[in-house]
C-alpha cells in the first residue's frame, strides 16, 4: 500500500486554506479602516419609547443583553454610550414602560444589562436595542434568539459619527 501524504487533493485543500488565511490576514487592517456602520434592522424601532432611564437592571433580571459599541471606520470602542433595551419578557410587553431600560458602555465599548427572560412574541423570541443619542446616527436593532431557551442575547453596534 502506498502512502500518499500529499495527494493532489490534499495539496489543493491545504494550499487553498493557506492562501485564504494569508489573503484574509492581509485584508484585516483594510477592513478595520473601513468598518461599515451597522444599519438599522426592519422592525427595530417597534414599540420604542424614547429616553428609557439608565437602570441597574430591568425588572427581576435573569437574562443578559450584551454587546459592543464601536466607531465606524477605525472600529475604536466607544465608552459611555447609552444603549436602550426593551423586549416582550416574562414581566411585560414591549409597549410597557417597565420593559424598557438603558445602560452605558464601559471603557472597552461593552455593555451588559440584566433583564427578565425574553419570551417568543410575534412569532420569534427577539429583543430590541436602540442607540439614539447625540454624536452618532440613530440605530435600531432587533436581534432574534437562536433558541427561546437562551438566557442571553448579543447585539453589536458600529456607529457613524453625525
Amino acid at each position: 500500500m502506498s502512502v500518499d501524504l500529499f495527494t493532489r487533493r490534499t495539496l489543493l485543500v491545504a494550499g487553498g486554506a493557506i492562501a485564504a488565511t494569508w489573503g484574509g490576514g492581509l485584508h484585516v487592517p483594510a477592513q478595520a479602516q473601513g468598518l461599515a456602520p451597522t444599519p438599522s434592522m426592519r422592525g427595530g424601532s417597534n414599540n420604542y419609547i424614547p429616553n428609557a432611564p439608565i437602570v441597574e437592571r430591568i425588572g427581576g433580571g435573569g437574562f443578559w443583553m450584551t454587546g459592543t459599541v464601536r466607531r465606524a471606520g477605525d472600529g475604536a470602542p466607544l465608552a459611555g454610550q447609552r444603549i436602550q433595551i426593551w423586549a416582550h419578557t416574562t414581566e411585560g410587553y414591549e409597549s410597557d414602560p417597565h420593559s424598557h431600560g438603558a445602560t452605558l458602555t464601559d471603557e472597552n465599548g461593552e455593555f451588559r444589562l440584566e433583564m427578565p427572560q425574553i419570551v417568543p412574541a410575534f412569532g420569534q423570541p427577539h429583543g430590541h436595542l436602540a442607540y439614539d443619542s447625540d454624536g452618532f446616527e440613530t440605530v435600531f436593532l432587533r436581534p432574534v434568539m437562536p433558541s427561546s431557551k437562551d438566557t442571553s442575547l448579543r447585539a453589536d453596534f458600529v456607529l457613524r459619527p453625525v
Partner: peptide, 23 residues
C-alpha cells in the same frame, strides 16, 4: 387581536415590511 397587542408589528406585516417572513 394582534393589532391590539402591538400595532407597529401589524402595520409592518400589512405593508410587507416586517422583519419576519411568516408575516
Amino acid at each position: 387581536g394582534l393589532w391590539i397587542t402591538s400595532p407597529p408589528d401589524v402595520i409592518d406585516a400589512l405593508l410587507f415590511a416586517s422583519p419576519t417572513p411568516f408575516s
